[in-house]
């Protein structure tokens, strides 16, 4: 598997992760159902406002799925940032991962690698994490 993502989206996600530091940032990229194409970037609010946790607000979540449904879109990428740890899914991430078709992108803003940033993508299905390549378009 491979994630193909426009460079501009990746740049925007990294910028968002720096802007929202020290909190984790989060969001999605949508695409036509079944296309696996990351076409529409939508930053979301981390309603947990936490450096170690993120959660989409419940109303925002419903609105997001309604909007996707109306547009015949689905969530192609779910992303969030880790602020002090590596860009690898935590046990928490794995237990809550509930979109078997989505690419789970993690970025890290940890100080050891500043000003560079990690940008990695995974599949998380039935608790099993598989890292995949990322191709920037």
């Amino acid at each position: 598997m491979v994630l193909r993502i426009p460079q501009s989206f990746a740049d925007a996600i990294l910028e968002q992760s720096r802007q929202e530091y020290p909190d984790e940032c989060c969001g999605v990229i949508l695409g036509p159902i079944g296309s696996d194409q990351a076409l529409r970037h939508k930053p979301m609010i981390n309603s947990a406002h936490s450096p170690t946790f993120y959660e989409f607000d419940s109303k925002d979540l419903l609105a997001l799925y309604r909007e996707a449904d109306d547009n015949d879109e689905e969530i192609v990428v779910v992303y969030h940032s880790h602020t002090e740890t590596q860009a690898y899914p935590s046990r928490t991430d794995i237990s809550y991962a509930s979109e078997p078709n989505a690419h789970y992108v993690l970025v890290s803003t940890r100080k050891e690698i500043a000003p560079a940033t990690e940008f990695r993508s995974y599949r998380i299905v039935d608790g099993v994490v598989t890292e995949e390549d990322v191709v920037f378009l």
């Binding site: 959660e55 989409f56 809550y96």
Partner: peptide, 12 residues
Amino acid sequence: VTILPAVAGGSM
């Protein structure tokens, strides 16, 4: 009725 799993996680 709509059922949606939360989109959540974190480094914790």
